[in-house]
């Protein structure tokens, strides 16, 4: 699908503007990744979201739900109009992903650190079942402060789950500020390589680079892969990029005007 990244950005902004607030920062930083996964890599069937042969995605950083919802709608999992119901009472699109509500959502997430274990469980089940489906999961860099992530990664390495690719959205910010100021993590590539995980870093906004990293990950035998994506939180929204308060934003009238301009500009590029 051409310009999928731009289309996803447009839909994210529209749905958050409609609501007036939302998790814009962490949604915008994973757009290129989702465009590559759903545009080029993953085997999915929008008409049959529970297809047993599909590849799985667990968005462990569940607050980036709006980015995934936009992607799923563009892929045809549900009508685009549904995007406008984000966070409305009784919506099927809650802030954080819910597998029981939204077609195409493989796991309920939102309590950080838990999605990674579930993704490992899906990958383990697929191995036990002798199948070849692939499992992708996206964690935040801040999320890696949760100890459960390290339980899951140790397990995945020990069980050689090479059908699993973990993406770390290293956007360097968490809700309260820079990740390095709150609890520094050091070089994640070095760290995870010592965990016996095939780990690489790549530009998280360069779709060609992402694709290449995934292709390499998928042919690395006996090791799960970690791809650390160097990203910018709120990428594409210039006035919020790297703003310390961009995790969850309640937009001012001026900001809404600016956001609408971004949509117009992106639309003109399609």
């Amino acid at each position: 699908m051409e310009n999928l990244d731009k289309k996803i950005r447009i839909e994210i902004i529209k749905m958050l503007v409609k609501r007036g607030f939302g998790h814009i920062g962490g949604s915008m930083s994973v757009v290129e990744l989702l465009a590559v996964l759903y545009g080029e890599v993953m085997n999915v069937d929008p008409k049959n979201p529970n297809w047993e042969e599909r590849d799985y995605l667990v968005l462990s950083k569940g607050h980036a739900g709006p980015a995934l919802y936009s992607t799923l709608a563009l892929k045809g999992f549900f009508d685009k109009e549904m995007l406008m119901t984000l966070n409305e009472p009784h919506t099927n699109l809650p802030s954080h992903c819910d597998r029981q509500k939204t077609p195409g959502i493989d796991m309920t997430t939102g309590s950080l650190g838990q999605g990674l274990s579930a993704a490992v469980g899906i990958a383990q089940a697929i191995k036990l079942q002798g199948k070849n489906n692939r499992v992708f999961t996206i964690v935040g860099d801040g999320e890696l402060q949760e100890g459960q992530c390290f339980e899951a990664l140790q397990y995945a390495a020990h069980h050689e789950l090479d059908n699993l690719v973990v993406f770390v959205d290293e956007n360097k910010l968490q809700l309260d500020g820079y990740t390095k100021d709150i609890c520094k993590q050091g070089d994640l590539v070095t760290k995870f390589n010592t965990f016996d995980l095939h780990t690489v870093r790549c530009d998280g906004h360069d779709m060609k680079a992402i694709k290449e990293s995934i292709n390499n990950a998928l042919v690395t035998p006996h090791k799960p892969s970690v791809i650390v994506l160097d990203t910018i939180k709120a990428k594409g929204v210039a006035f919020l990029e790297n703003d310390l308060g961009n995790h969850h934003v309640r937009f001012t009238d001026e900001q809404i005007i600016l956001l609408n301009e971004i949509v117009k500009e992106l639309e003109s590029e399609l």
Binding site: L116, S117, A118, V120, G121, A125, Q148, E151
Partner: peptide
């Protein structure tokens, strides 16, 4: 032996792992 997993001393992860297995119908 193929359907027994000694996860290790990580109860939180074990519950998540169980969730993933259940997603696949186990």
């Amino acid at each position: 032996p193929d359907r027994f997993i000694n996860v290790g001393i990580m109860e939180q992860h074990m519950m998540g792992l169980a969730a993933g297995l259940s997603v696949r119908g186990m």
